[in-house]
Design a protein around this nucleic acid. Structure first.
Lengths: 355, 355
DNA sequence: GCCGGGCTGGAATGCGCTTTCCACCGTAGG
DNA sequence: CCTACGGTGGAAAGCGCATTCCAGCCCGGC
């Protein structure tokens, strides 16, 4: 039989919650004992009988510990932060899936934050994670080359790490921070090689935002490798645009408007490639008959579509897992660690061998 | 000039953090004043000069409030929980994007949890959210019809709501809970009608897990409407499988193995449809020449692929926003509210008009 | 038979912050 | 000139929990 609850002072709008002391009272033990019974406190035991009583009381009161209070008392939360640019983007959601899985495995949960495509908000989100006292944060996404922006980010990261959190970035490396690096240059170069091998000699590029690191890495490596292999990439055939479907579409439109249409167009990511496909179709340009198209990322939902899009696969699972591993292992002492995730060319119908 | 920090008791492994009292000391004011200066406490003012001093001190100490402590003191966190089955699935990530955006707008952050395709873990995640004391939780995803499972979920939800959190589900409605309902039956029926109109008279269905509510709604509505419109759907042409790419592939394989191949196959979601496409290709069955295929969801990355997949579009943005709105408005008093999100048939090349 | 030591339970402290409650200031009104 | 009152800063109480420290218990050994 439970006696009347003492009038607790609750902020307005709050509902009475059952606390550990309620459980203790119901079980007729002290708060300390209740806590120990529930947590199996280390190097300390509580009589099985008592333990049972406490557990039963907790059960019948539908007690759940308050994670915030636990975090305070223990001095650490059980959450890991994940910062992305757009969770709806398959690239990020693929990484998010892996991170979520990894966190789950070790009993952590993830706090998701999205810059909503505004890279200059990254540092704000890092600050948010600091406020939240997340154990670790994983930053996914290409940072811009803008030095001021990066300085702000580093600054925020510094504060975060000073507070004891560990950090890992995935995508483009960040000097001094544990990074999982996706081999964009290697993949782009390999793609260029594969296209040359298939008989293409002229190429255009849908290059993404000029300052976007990842886009730049892919674009430059592709161009260099294609030229090094004997192919031609006209400067006027390198068009920039947003890293989005619309960006790809308008860039493709611009490119197709130029004379000397290249034999193949490389979009620096699949989403842009899709936009390009659409633009081509709208203009009556057939793919791959009139122009071949290749992308980058190998978005999962695009596999096995006809005609298949030639692209470069990024093992997102591997990348996400690696990032989680780096972040959750904590800072491994001195040097910033670096993991390389290799990419792989996937040839499909959008770039058939040329006669 | 700061004097020596008093030795604070920190759990092992912890780093000293700058707290509000450090700020107060540095500014030469009391803790209360510091708090008020920082928060602009209601119906209470602090002298502009003092306020400045505190702000400056906080700034120079790189102080950030501890969200956990604030949550304790205020009695409420600033987080909203989102429960999905697989964040890598475009359906869920689309909703997640909208929810994230909505939460962000009102200064909340989202805690993401994934069942990893195990619907019977939903109630665990609800319990997790309760521990975390999230202000609200949004559950996305088709719940199974399994009564025991649903009972557990309801149970967990009851505890959650008793603790003062509001909850909303999106997808399939849940009796007594604020729900945003996606008009699956309407969409499936409309699709059936559109196919009949294009001249199809026999159809097969790739039906997802038998107990899956959403799958069932789409399947049954489609079958009913197709038959009602004069078409034929043989019982043997309704195949079940997992709600995944592989599920679609193997279901398609099974279906194509039967005699009397139907003219069109309706997969209850796009991902399954893709698997089906792949299986067809592997078996040498051409789409749409030998068999037409339609899906459901209109996954964003599938738009404008050739041949386009006929499907039913779900406005994920709208659904996510609506869910967030329901959840964040709190429980609107008595009746559980319900929002209907209409779907729209999108006809593409995978189901050309029949001669 | 008595004392020491291992167990075990309870009281108390503190985590960082918000928010009463109280004390104190100055000023205006009687 | 004294009191009453609005305004403003500080002390302190808690939010829910983990944990340290201490007290009591029972057992065995001398």
């Amino acid at each position: 039989m439970t006696d009347v609850l003492p009038a607790r002072r609750y902020p307005p709008g709050m509902v009475a919650r059952v606390t550990l002391s309620d459980v203790a009272r119901a079980a007729g033990v002290s708060l300390a004992t209740a806590s120990r019974a529930l947590n199996g406190s280390s190097n300390r035991t509580v009589q099985p009988a008592l333990r049972e009583r406490v557990l039963a009381a907790a059960e019948s009161l539908r007690y759940t510990p308050d994670a915030n209070a636990q975090a305070m008392a223990r001095g650490a939360t059980s959450s890991v932060g994940l910062i992305v640019h757009d969770i709806a983007d398959p690239y990020f959601s693929g990484i998010a899936a892996a991170v979520t899985r990894a966190a789950d495995r070790v009993g952590l949960h993830v706090t998701l934050a999205s810059t909503q495509h505004q890279p200059d908000r990254e540092h704000e989100l890092v600050a948010l994670m600091r406020r939240l006292r997340t154990r670790a944060v994983i930053i996914a996404g290409g940072r811009m080359a803008d030095p001021e922006r990066e300085a702000r980010l580093r600054d925020a990261l510094g504060d975060l790490m000073a507070a004891g959190a560990s950090v890992a970035v995935v995508g483009q490396p960040l000097e001094g921070i544990d990074s999982v690096v996706i081999d964009n240059p290697g993949g782009a170069a390999a793609l260029a090689g594969a296209l040359l091998e298939r008989g293409y000699t002229t190429a255009g590029v849908l290059g993404g935002p000029p300052e976007h690191q990842t886009a730049r890495a892919r674009r430059e490596s592709f161009v260099d490798a294609f030229r090094a292999g004997g192919g031609t990439v006209g400067e006027e055939h390198v068009v920039h645009g947003l890293f989005t479907w619309e960006g790809g579409a308008s860039a493709m439109e611009a490119l197709l408007g130029r004379p000397d249409r290249p034999q193949v167009v490389f979009a620096v990511n699949d989403v842009m490639a899709l936009g390009a496909l659409s633009a081509a179709r709208a203009l009556g340009v057939r793919v791959p008959d009139d122009v071949a198209v290749a992308g980058f990322d190998d978005i999962v939902t695009l596999r096995d579509v006809v005609p298949g899009l030639t692209t470069v696969r990024i093992p997102l699972d591997e990348a996400g897992e690696a990032a989680a591993e780096l972040a959750l292992d904590g800072m491994g002492g001195g040097e910033a660690r670096r993991r390389l995730v290799r990419t792989e060319v996937v040839l499909r119908e959008s770039t058939p061998p040329r006669a």
